[in-house]
Design a protein around this nucleic acid. Structure first.
Length: 1030
RNA sequence: GCUGAAGUGGUGGAAUUGGUAGACACGUUGGACUUAAAAUCCAAUGUCCAUUAGGACGUACGGGUUCAAGUCCCGUCUUCAGUACCA
């Protein structure tokens, strides 16, 4: 019997599905363990070998935990709202729900064939109305909440209204908009309903506000900060501009401190926590108010260095600052306006890219120093960002490099307030090891003391206070897209109203086209049936809108992160109970939160921050009991593709007039010559093998002279002679017809250009040799290679290789389907783990899979011989037991440490040893299968079955390690001389230090090594090493 | 610039508290089996010197601590990732 992996894997996958082997129970005596993968977006391209990496790791862990006696929840689902399906819909007119369904089918088939132990009965899809009903419900909860800074948690909006009714807003300490006017209880009670609603919006955790958003014209939508990379959109790389729009926002900033503090309670990687800390960007300092001379206005600034208050020599406002136009003097008006116009034109991207250029204008106005009462000139400059802090800074050039550069550039005074600091070249930016001077009452103090006192004195003046600032901005929540969750919102007189929970879900309407309307409204603006009837509580036709009982519905949809911010709770609930709640109290109580979460690090500041925010809100409002969604998180590294390249060349030719005057070609002449030059600049149809590339690095053979070796010249000559001749002939013909004399010159430094083109990795074997015929007949490349000529080296065409991200456009994608068919899912699983540490980025190389595949064949042969099962009840030998228990120990440690690559090696060693030992003992081979089963479940189930077991191996107890089997009676001691190992010597384990020394010193090899010298010292570490010094 | 991670054979990688560097694989070379191929099995494989015995060098680079350093300390370089006028 041979190892027929295809039928074995099919058999067990069917068995697991039929018996619901991995269905989790919400009622169990066993301890719970929740293992979760970041759920995939089902793209049209299907899975490539990089995708399952994390799933395999989490599956091994889940299966291990089952062996360890845990009730394991290991679900999977789809993040099925998203841009690609919508883009596809725009192009083809196909409904995104249809393509999404097709893609999910492909994903499911691909996932199933890898043998994951998912509980599919709990699947979720964010685009299913029964799911997004609850996303809409959570949105309503956010709307119905405000953040009370006194209790440091969110409360129902009703508690805020009660306060307003009794005390007004003076005593309320809430996370809210900063432009709220104070009002009394009486005023509140006299406001119209609309005025009240408008005020409440400024307190709600999700609110409608006109915000500056990142508008991406190419995508026709708004993007969140984390969806922009280097000033362009993450998807597609389109430019992004600032634009004011009325949008739903999430008041995540209310949770900044708790999001920061919470990081200390969770087991995530340091780099991930650091990313979130940076994103939250807490800075502690003070706010200081400067009076503007001649006006009633004040300028508030935030500073982290209140101790340097006496070092202020100017102030800088962002060009967008609201006071600029008011305080600018007539003399400076023109310059200021010109500057504002100039900076407004510069895109955010330009401003970010160009950090070096210093620019700014004096407004002519002065502020008053709070202590010295000296006048301080007020400047504007675009190095101050309107969106951070108050959009104004107190500039302390001696202590801040940007202020320093600005002062130097505009020749503003740089007073030194640091004792003994040299500020002739740059600012002294460090807080440490320096005392304040020239600063009145702060003289002689260090940073800490001076800051404290400065804040105290500012408070006495009523011109400042201690303050903490966060970089974290509120998150824009509206998207001008079709394929996302509709908001459960309609508008009465422009004021948003929530639809009652009882009427959810509000289902995405049908539209004819998935594009924005001609008026620039989002795609939902095209829906004909998209109005809310408050009498019948149904969605009705738009033409019925009367703005009395029937109102327009919200046209935006929610962003991608809405559905993914809470899906981990949905899995906790069995499908049957999902109607009444997003998850029942019992389910939430039992599963609590995710014990292990595995996914990519690209979600560091998006999904992983927003989920934490929503969970904290749900906790505050009493819907869940946990403060954090993911206890432990591991980032799997990306599997990279090894791209293959073929090479083409071209000539860099110049045409020069023979007279020295350097007359250029006339227009007509140029027209004649250009096409010829173009033809040879890139010789399209000829491909050179990689090794021949080097012959094109240097000069053309004809002007090489004798300095170059024979080989070089002959090679190059052979290959390009014809081309050069043709080029010269064709050009010569053209040039001869001209009046002037021209000559053809190859660019002396770089006569050739080398071009590389991606080719499909499928046509390249493990020795980098290209299957030319396969490539030529590949339809996908069209005519590109059909008539091409391939110049070989040593009889073959060698491609160049480079490691890049796996992507369809780079032709380096490896599909797992083919691998599963050729080697089996168990081989794929083992190999993905064997590649290297989970967290690391690593290139894929299919050739190596034969190693793990051979291992599985050897494993099979250990159990099954030509005449069937070899396993018997033989008494295990000491060596058998040693091998087994060594393996148990190592594998258990590896899994706990997520070091899956090393356990695969351990299995190989174990099987190699047991094969050599000719082990047939069931007592050894049965537990070995349990060890291997999390990694290679199909073969393990099959052999387990053949050993006569009736039930699945999946919940069999993990073998128990017994140290007694590893106790050695002797040790192969390395004997080193001056730290260098020279030979080994087997000595009894219980031999004393002195005896070891005596035995070693008496050994002939020691004597030979020493060659008559007397050692200075002999180090003996029993059980470890002997080192002879001297 | 800042923050974080990393740098080990031809390749992926191993070495858990400082104690035999290169486990386990891939690849390569040679051999066995076969009419042949595939599959399988055996052997060699860090570099250099040497017929052998053996020796020298060797974990990015330069120093240091130690009987002993891939591992600890100081400095430098390179790569990758994140972030960036954040006051």
């Amino acid at each position: 019997m041979t190892y027929d992996f295809n039928s074995i894997e099919k058999k067990w996958q069917d068995y697991w599905a039929k018996n619901e082997t991995f269905k989790a129970s919400n009622n169990s005596d066993k301890p719970k363990y929740y293992v979760l993968d970041m759920f995939p977006y089902p793209s049209g391209a299907g899975l490539h070998v990089g995708h399952p990496l994390g799933y395999i790791a989490s599956d091994i862990y889940a299966r291990y935990k089952r062996h360890k006696g845990f009730n394991v929840l290991h679900p999977q689902g789809y993040d099925s709202f998203g841009l690609p399906a919508e883009q596809y819909a725009i192009q083809t007119g196909q409904h995104p729900a249809v393509t999404t369904e097709t893609n999910i089918k492909t994903y499911r088939r691909q996932l199933d064939q890898i043998g994951f132990s998912f509980d599919w009965s709990r699947e979720v899809r964010t685009s299913n109305p029964e799911y997004y009903k609850w996303t809409q419900w959570i949105f309503i909860q956010l709307f119905e909440s405000w953040y009370n800074n006194e209790t440091n948690k969110s409360e129902a909006i009703g508690t805020l209204i009660s306060k307003f009714e009794v005390e007004g807003n003076a005593t309320v300490n809430a996370a809210c908009d900063d432009n709220i006017e104070p009002f009394t209880a009486e005023e509140w009670n006299n406001y119209t309903s609309e005025e009240q609603q408008s005020i409440l919006l400024k307190y709600r955790l999700t609110y409608l506000a006109e915000t500056e958003v990142n508008w991406c014209p190419a995508l026709g939508t708004v993007l969140a900060n984390d969806e922009i990379v280097n000033g362009v959109s993450e998807r597609g790389g389109h430019p992004v501009v600032r634009k004011k729009m009325t949008q739903w926002s999430m008041r995540i900033s209310a949770y900044a401190e708790r999001l920061l503090q919470g990081l200390d309670t969770i087991d995530w990687t340091d780099s991930l926590k650091e990313s979130q800390r940076n994103w939250i960007g807490k800075s502690v300092g003070a706010s200081v108010s400067f009076n503007v001379n001649g006006y009633d206005d004040i300028i508030d600034v935030f500073t982290t260095r209140p101790d340097t208050i006496f070092g202020v020599s100017f102030m800088t406002l962002a060009p967008e600052h609201e006071l600029v136009s008011k305080i600018t003097t007539t003399e400076q008006k023109e310059a200021v306006e010109a500057y504002i116009e100039k900076t407004a034109k510069r895109s955010e991207r330009d401003r970010m890219a160009d950090v070096k250029t210093i620019s700014g204008v004096f407004t002519g106005a002065y502020a008053e120093h709070p202590f010295s009462k000296e006048p301080i000139p007020i400047w504007i400059g675009d190095y101050v960002l309107a969106s951070y802090g108050t959009g104004a800074v107190m500039a302390v050039p001696c202590g801040d490099q940007r202020d320093y550069d600005f002062a130097k550039h505009f020749d503003i005074a740089i007073p030194n307030i640091f004792e003994g600091a040299d500020i002739s070249e740059e600012a002294y930016a460090s807080k440490d090891n320096v005392k304040i001077t020239n600063s009145d009452f702060l003289n002689g103090m260090n940073y800490k003391k001076a800051s404290k006192l400065a804040i105290y004195q500012l408070e006495q003046l009523g011109q400042g206070e201690g303050k903490t600032n966060y970089r974290l901005r509120d998150a824009v929540f509206s998207r001008q897209r079709y394929w996302g969750e509709p908001f459960p919102v309609y508008y009465v007189n422009g004021m948003p109203q929530m639809i009652d929970k009882a009427h959810l879900p509000i289902v995405l309407p049908e539209v004819e086209k998935y594009l924005p309307t001609e008026e620039g409204e989002p795609p939902l603006g095209r829906a004909d049936v998209w109005a809310w009837d408050t009498k019948t509580n149904t969605v009705v036709s738009n033409d019925k809108i009367n703005n009395i009982t029937i109102h327009p519905l919200e046209l935006n949809t929610m962003p991608g992160w809405a559905g993914s911010s809470w899906y981990f709770f949905r899995y906790m609930e069995d499908t049957i109970n999902r109607g009444d709640a997003f998850a029942t109290e019992d389910a939430l109580k039992y599963w609590e939160n995710v014990d292990l979460y595995i996914g990519g690090s690209e979600h560091a500041t998006g999904h992983l921050l927003y989920s934490r925010f929503w969970v904290k809100l749900l906790k505050d409002r009493g819907f869940v009991t946990v403060e954090e969604p993911f206890k432990k998180l591991i980032n799997q590294g990306m599997i990279l593709g090894t791209s293959a390249f073929v090479y083409r060349i071209g000539f860099n030719v110049n045409i020069q007039p023979n007279d020295s005057k350097g007359v250029v070609l006339s227009k007509e002449e140029k027209e004649k010559v250009e096409p010829i030059l173009e033809k040879y600049r890139f010789i399209k149809n000829r491909f050179y093998s990689k090794g021949l590339k080097k012959f094109f690095k240097k000069r053309i053979y004809s002007d090489m002279g004798s300095e170059v070796d024979e080989n070089y010249v002959t090679h190059q000559k052979k290959m390009i002679e014809e081309d050069v001749e043709n080029l010269k002939n064709e050009l010569g013909l053209a040039l001869n017809s001209f009046d002037k004399n021209y000559s053809i010159n190859f660019n002396p430094l770089q006569p050739f250009s080398i071009f590389k083109t991606h080719v499909k990795v499928q046509y390249v074997n493990s020795s980098d040799e290209l299957d030319i015929e396969g490539l030529k007949t590949d339809g996908e490349f069209g005519e590109d290679f059909k008539d091409a000529e391939f110049i070989l080296e040593d009889g073959v065409y060698k491609v160049g290789r480079d490691v890049e991200k796996m992507s369809k456009s780079k032709y380096n994608v490896v599909n797992p389907d083919q691998i599963v068919e050729d080697y089996g899912a168990d081989s794929l699983r083992l190999y993905e783990m064997f590649l290297g540490p989970l967290e690391q980025y690593k290139p894929w190389n299919t050739a190596g899979i034969t190693g793990v595949h051979n291992f599985l064949k050897k494993l099979w042969k250990l159990y099954i011989g030509d005449n069937g099962l070899k396993v018997n009840n033989a008494q295990p030998t000491v060596d058998n037991l040693k091998t087994l228990h060594k393996t148990i120990k190592k594998v258990a440690e590896d899994i706990e440490n997520f070091s899956f690559n090393t356990s695969v090696s351990t299995f190989m060693i174990a099987v190699n040893e047991l094969t050599a030992q000719k082990c047939t003992s069931k007592d050894i081979l049965e537990p070995l299968l349990v060890l291997i089963s999390p990694y290679a479940p199909h073969i393990s189930e099959e052999l387990w079955d053949q050993l006569g077991n009736r039930d699945s191996i999946s919940t069999v107890q993990f073998p128990i390690f017994e140290a007694s089997h590893l106790v050695e009676s002797s040790k192969e001691y390395p004997i080193s001389f001056n730290g260098k190992m020279r030979f080994t010597l087997e000595l009894p384990m219980d031999m004393s230090k002195d005896d070891i020394e005596k035995t070693v010193m008496a050994h002939e090899k020691t004597i030979a090594q020493l060659d008559g010298r007397t050692p200075k010292k002999v180090i003996v570490v029993p059980g470890k090493i002997v080192n002879i010094v001297g």
